[in-house]
Amino acid sequence: MTDTATDTTAEAPQTPRVTEEELARKARRTELTSRWFWRILSYIVVLAVWEFALLDIFGFLRGTPLDPKLLPGPSEVVATFFEIWGEGTMPAAFQATLTRIAIGFGLSFLIGAMIGILMQSKWFEGFFKDAVLISLSAPGLIWVLITAIIFGNRPLGPTIAIILTTFALVTVNVSEGIKALPKELIDMAKSFQVGTFKRNRQIVIPHLAPYLFTGLRFGFSIAWKVTVLTEVFSSSEGIGFEMRISAVLFDMSEFLTWILAFFFFALFLEKVVLEAIERRYFRWRQAVTAS
């Protein structure tokens, strides 16, 4: 009896031990929950404001409630979304728009990167500097209108508008990346007698990749907007064209549906495609940030 009592006393003061890893995991969980809470809240607020605008309390009080045709509610827009999806119009419109972006931004990326490389020479820097500045600061709408006037419905219009609005973003990023080339790593490789091809593949390209990715990300988001704008003004297919038709027909439900589709696609691109690329190819940067 006495022995058991002594043993119990000896073991009693033990408190549960929490490891550092558990604490870090808990902190991460709390941070994630909090971030998602605010994110979801933002959607609830937007939907509530939308519904509230529909009620138009002040107009209602004056005896003139807002016509639901002018601003259909969220549920109606979602219903129209599935209706259009079912008709097959949406994939065709996305295909037309995305093809334009792929051609225009693909060319813009190549041209921008080439100019970025050329701008390492002070003569070419002088030659391209103002063009880059103008492209960065001029609103995309200017190029959209000019190309719409000059090329009308021809596919060259959107392509040139995309190049003019986005090449400079790629140029600036490539140029900055080249200026920041890690000389100490290149010297290290030389001292270990690593060949030029391997040096470029394992040092220069991975170093430039985040700069190219930033150019790609921002350039694409602008190319996307500019393409839709060109379609609004001068096209017979694509998301912008569908929006114009809806606006002309005063079909707000369909107009908002296209905006919703646009929004979902942008979200898919950012959250699924770009973040996956980032996780896959830039894992080392997360390691640097975390340490």
């Binding site: 100490e184 790593l185 010297d187 394992q202 991975p206 990749a209 830039f282 080392w284 940067r285 640097v288």
Partner: peptide
């Protein structure tokens, strides 16, 4: 080297 000079992406 004075600093390790490792490729951060490898």
């Amino acid at each position: 080297f004075q600093a390790a000079r490792l490729l951060p992406w490898r």
